[in-house]
Structures are given as C-alpha cells and as structure tokens.
Design a protein around this nucleic acid. Structure first.
Ligand SMILES: [Mn+2]
Ligand SMILES: [Mn+2]
Ligand SMILES: [Zn+2]
Ligand SMILES: [Zn+2]
Lengths: 145, 145
DNA sequence: GCTACTTTTGCGAATGAGTCTCAAAACTCT
DNA sequence: AGAGTTTTGAGACTCATTCGCAAAAGTAGC
C-alpha cells in the first residue's frame, strides 16, 4: 500500500470510515496525476478504467480528501472548483494568465513568512491560504507586440 | 455626477456603451454600500427602490464594473461570487474564519511588494491578485476553550 | 419632432456544477 | 447466516449564472 493510501486509510479509520474500492480508485487516480484537476476531468479519467464509479461518489470523496490534508481546493477556473495535491508538494502561489490560461506555480517562503507574521498580529490561526494573481504571462506579452 | 459615475461613464463611452439608468442605479447602490457583496444581496437592496431592475442586468453589469477597475471579484463564499470596491479602497487580504464566517481585512504592503518582485522575476504582468486565508479567528479560538 | 439604426432591457427559459434521496450493495461483527 | 452500519450508483434536484428574444430606450441625422 502506498504512503498516501495509508495516510488516507488512517484518516478514515479515525472517523469510523473505510477505505473502500471507489475511494481508493479516486485517491490513486489523483496521485498518479500530478496536476490541478476538477471533478469532471477526474471523472473522465477514472471512467476509462472504472465504469462503475459515480460522479456522486467523487464529489462525496473530495471533502474527505481535503479534510485529510492530502489535497486542497486551490483555484477556481471555468466555473469549476479545482484541487491540487498537498502531500508531496510544497506550498506555492499561482499566476494565471488571462490570455492563454496557463498557470505558473511559484514558491515563496518570504510571502508565507510575512503572512504568518501578519496572522499572528491578528491572533488568527491560519489553516490554509490561497494566493492567486491574474495577469499576462511572458510569452503572451510577446505575442501582442 | 459623482466621481465613480464619471469614471464608469468614460469607461463605457470608450467601449461605445452608455451609462443607462439601470447601470447607474447598480453602480450607485454598490458605492453607497461599503462592503463585500454578492449579486443576490445587491439585487434585494436595489429592488427596494427600483422594482424594474432585473437580475440579468445586474449580472450583465458586473463584468463591466470589474473591467472598468471600479470593483473586483474577491471572495467566493456560500457558493456565490463576491465582489468589493477597488476605487477608494486599498488592496488588502482576507482572513476568513471557518467557525463564524467573519472576514477580517488586512493590508500588507510587504506582501504586495514581495509579490510584485516575484512576478518581475517571472516576467509576469500582474493585473490583480487575491490572497485569502482560512482559519479560526481570535474570538472563536476563545469560545472553544 | 420623426426615422432608421444600435444598444439595452426584463422576463423567463436554459445551463450546469454541486447536492441530495433512496433503495440496493458491501462491510462488520457475532 | 443475520442484524446493523456504511457506502454506493443512478437519477432527481437546487440554485447561481447565462442566454434568447422581443420590446424599450437611446442616438444621430434630418
Ligand atoms: Mn498549484
Ligand atoms: Mn475585502
Ligand atoms: Zn499567457
Ligand atoms: Zn470566528
């Protein structure tokens, strides 16, 4: 059993829930795909190999995965919620190009540090944050010229 | 004519569009209300005085107001898009308490500066950013004890 | 003013992401 | 195997947002 499966199983067990086949399929598919994803796209991928996993089960599993700390809800594009891994990935922010739709991921310990300091001054206990910036990426700037 | 009306009118004119009565009502209502808002809540407020402004027109006007730079789309709560003023308000980030739903606004020139620096290294031209953190606010932390 | 043209509007219907219901399946424990 | 619990797939449902359309309003030239 892979590491993320074990973590999820333990998380579920602590809540009196089980790592069932559909849940495992969802989890494994997410963790073979190292990208942002939305439920519909995930459903399509899963359906190729598992015609019997329903959309409802995927929707039901997402909050569990989020609560377990394995994934988080990060972006919202095309009117859909998007998720991404936390486990095995470090925190980062997103530059979303409004021309080509590309997403650039950037790490910044500095921003993170400042944010934590800021939260401390307000006595706010941060569990998760999202920083997204919209704009025009380098290659799209060149296209305009 | 108030300053924001003039700005919006000029913006519209430049696009060959007009500052009509419904558009002006929407704009003015937003600018008398200095808070985050979603379309439905705005609709209710507007309807008290103007029974003939439709939801569709409000939805249609939002992107224009955003494009004009008067407001921006900031949070998403309760499955609804929320907007806030830009004109007359400085950039800030949001701490959203997951217990009580309260939103704390915090300014941080430092984060802004770091973000701009970061964007510069990627040659990304930022037009707008959103930083939201979820967690537990001070008073909700005390409640738990 | 009036006409011809374009933009805007309200209404209600449509769309679609996400949720819910429910009866059948899968598990768990004895 | 049986009783009790959790989970599931299928499809119905909700509700924020978008669309289609015919009527209304605005614009520019007479
Ligand atoms: Mn990412
Ligand atoms: Mn704000
Ligand atoms: Zn681009
Ligand atoms: Zn709180």
């Amino acid at each position: 059993m892979q590491e993320h499966e074990k973590l999820f199983k333990d998380f579920l067990k602590a809540k009196g829930l089980k790592l069932t086949l559909p849940r495992r399929v969802i989890l494994d598919t997410i963790f073979t795909y190292h990208q942002h994803f939305n439920v519909d796209a995930l459903y399509d991928v899963i359906r190729k190999d598992h015609q019997n996993v329903s959309r409802a089960t995927i929707y039901r599993t997402m909050p569990l995965l989020v609560e377990s700390g394995l994934i988080k809800q990060s972006l919202r594009c095309q009117s859909k919620d998007h998720y991404e891994h936390i486990y095995g990935h470090s925190d980062h922010l997103h530059f979303l190009c409004i021309k080509c739709g590309n997403i650039i991921e950037v790490e910044s310990k500095e921003i993170e540090k400042t944010l934590k300091k800021l939260a401390a001054t307000k006595n706010f206990d941060i569990s998760d944050y999202n920083l997204g910036a919209k704009g025009v990426c380098e290659s799209c700037q060149k296209k305009i010229l």
